[in-house]
């Protein structure tokens, strides 16, 4: 049943899509039916695969660097009062900036290649990672800190061996958000200026009325984002299995 349900949902949506095309009789360059998209995906698999590789690499690199930077900032903020005074305003300001508006600048500065897209993804996930993790680091249960104090724990040990593991569940929710939005960053970067990637392929196909190819790229992008999210979710659940999920509300 665990596998059957999502398959059933996906099948239902595809059927609905097909019916919509049949019922309205829209031309394929407006809305191609799912079978046509599947045939295109099959026929152009090499092309789609090559562009998928680019986008996947951008997402993974963005996720990696964004997590390292975000988690690092949060640790720094938690460790030092002076860092809080200086870095916290920057963190908040970074969120006030419309990150998408920066995309043209990033392409200008970092070029048409992969770097500007990675930077875009990093910028998008930096804030959710840093803010959730910092929040977790600030909310260490008082009793544990008191125990550590009576034990004469060293300050660094308190941060790394107590506050950090205690904040991992909070970091995990930040990482889940990051996994969900990182593909957006990469694709927006590609739209602004690039020569490969699924976002590029979509624009390219759109301009040539190859709507079926556009849908094929979109489909693969969804698949990519979904599998990324589930992979991250499972890895996180495994990493913090000491905090089992409480029963789902029925």
């Amino acid at each position: 049943m665990r596998l059957a349900r999502p398959l059933l949902i996906a099948g239902g949506l595809l059927a609905l899509w097909h019916l919509l095309v049949l019922a309205t009789g829209v031309p394929p360059y407006i809305l191609p039916d799912p079978l046509r998209v599947a045939r295109t995906l099959w026929a152009r698999a090499d092309l789609v695969a090559a562009h998928t590789a680019t986008t996947a690499l951008e997402i993974l690199l963005g996720l990696f660097f964004g997590t390292v930077l975000g988690a690092g900032s949060a640790l720094l903020l938690a460790a030092s009062r002076r860092a809080r005074a200086w870095v916290l305003p920057v963190l908040v300001a970074s969120q006030a900036l419309p990150v998408f508006a920066l995309a043209p600048l990033l392409v200008l500065w970092l070029g048409y290649g992969i770097a500007s897209k990675v930077a875009m993804a990093v910028l998008i996930i930096y804030f959710p990672v840093a803010s959730t993790f910092f929040d977790g680091l600030r909310r260490t249960p008082e009793g544990w800190l008191e125990l550590a104090r009576v034990m004469d724990a060293r300050p660094l040990a308190i941060l790394l061996r107590l506050r950090l593991p205690a904040a991992l569940p909070a970091l995990a929710s930040g990482l889940r958000v990051a996994a969900a939005v990182a593909p957006i960053g990469a694709v927006v970067g590609e739209w602004v200026g690039s020569s490969s990637g699924l976002g590029y392929l979509m624009l390219h196909a759109n301009a040539r009325m190859q709507t079926d190819l556009l849908f094929a790229a979109l489909f693969v992008l969804c698949l990519l984002a979904l599998s990324l999210w589930f992979a991250v979710d499972r890895a996180l659940a495994r990493a913090i299995r000491w905090q089992p999920e409480t029963a789902h509300p029925t």
Binding site: G143, W144, E146, L147, A148, V150, M151, D152, A153, R154, A157, I158, R161, L162, P165, A166, L168, I240, W242, Q243
Partner: peptide, 28 residues
């Protein structure tokens, strides 16, 4: 001083054995 609070204050991410020696870990 060693202090035992009313609640057990065990660290949920550490095994029972690691919880027992956590003071020594925290002191380096």
């Amino acid at each position: 001083i060693a202090w035992m609070a009313q609640s057990d204050l065990l660290f949920p991410w550490l095994s029972v054995l690691d919880n027992l020696v956590v003071g020594y870990r925290l002191r380096g």
